[in-house]
């Protein structure tokens, strides 16, 4: 791919994206408009995240790409290969070894550290969009810090269902100012957003970039009598026994039997390597069979 520039994008495009990222850092949670370019993958498949990553990557970086928490899902593989080819950078599946992590729908279980950048792929950056379809209106609402509509919606949920009926892309308020969409991560991940790493959000089709600097106050919206509840499946992981991780539910037979496994494949594999075992760990089964 030597016909293309380092990290695919031309330098002028990178400068434009870099300026937008810095504005995002300066005004945490505010959606900075940027002239998103057509990328060689479709809109909605991570073009925003890919552009942000392309603008950030240095030759010395080690990149990790996850989708649904897993390194080996097809779209994660496709994006990782894209950067291996166009930026000739090192790649890894280990959260700890990565300097730049591009993600779709999850925050890794392993706490991120200073020096790391987490790049989120964002489909709909506007947290108010499903309450008000017009960009001209939602922009005004952010300008005036007029978030009553969002609270009314959440409160209606409680009145109707006894719960806030949002389980992912759960809105947060950043540094007491902007209401922000954390991208479609499960609400289980929301509390992790107050972290040591830089968080960058790219929405290609909607032409928006936003950011959360390290150690920034990120609060999931809630009510005093209905506090935010980052719940998850009430099971341990069937492979590594972890009780504190977000789990995928996998249907394992025609009778609807199921198992629960860590959505973060790297975290789960590492725990298993350390000797942690779950209900359905292969070695345990062998031992049981031997008994």
């Amino acid at each position: 791919m030597s016909d293309y520039n380092f990290a695919y994008l031309d330098e002028q495009t990178k400068r434009m994206i870099r300026r937008a990222i810095l504005k995002g850092i300066a005004v945490p949670g505010y959606q900075v408009p940027f002239a998103s370019r057509e990328m060689p993958m479709p809109y909605g498949w991570g073009t925003g995240g890919v552009q942000v990553s392309a603008a950030c990557l240095c030759p010395e970086d080690t990149l990790k790409v996850i989708d649904q928490g897993a390194d080996d899902t097809t779209n994660a593989v496709s994006i990782r290969k894209f950067f291996e080819k166009t930026a000739e950078i090192a790649v890894t599946e280990k959260t700890r070894e990565a300097t730049v992590i591009q993600t779709r729908h999850r925050i890794p279980e392993e706490p991120l550290t200073e020096g790391q950048i987490l790049v989120y792929q964002v489909p709909i950056p506007e947290p108010l969009r499903f309450l008000e379809p017009r960009e001209t209106e939602t922009r005004k609402m952010h300008a005036l810090e007029e978030y009553g509509l969002m609270h009314v919606k959440l409160y209606e949920d409680i009145a109707k269902h006894g719960h806030i009926a949002t389980s992912y892309a759960y809105p947060v308020k950043v540094e007491d100012r902007y209401v922000m969409d954390p991208s479609p991560i499960p609400k289980f991940d929301n509390p992790k957003m107050d972290m040591a790493a830089i968080q960058l959000f790219g929405a290609g089709r909607e032409q928006r970039i936003y950011a959360v600097p390290p150690y920034t106050k990120v609060v999931s919206l809630d009510f005093e009598d209905h506090p935010f509840d980052p719940s998850k499946a009430n099971h341990p992981c069937d492979l590594c026994g972890a009780e504190h991780t977000y789990l995928d539910e996998v249907i394992i037979d025609d009778e609807g039997g199921r198992m629960f496994v860590c959505s973060d494949t790297d975290y789960c594999a590492e725990r298993q390597a350390e000797g942690h075992r779950g209900r359905l760990s292969p070695s345990e089964n062998i031992e049981k069979a031997a008994e």
Binding site: E11, R15, L22, C56, P59, P214
Partner: peptide
């Protein structure tokens, strides 16, 4: 080497503003 040097310089600027 403009693409590589600019990338390193940007990361310095990003870290500086983010921290």
């Amino acid at each position: 080497a403009p693409p590589q040097d600019a990338a390193r310089a940007f990361r310095a600027a990003l870290e500086a503003l983010a921290r």
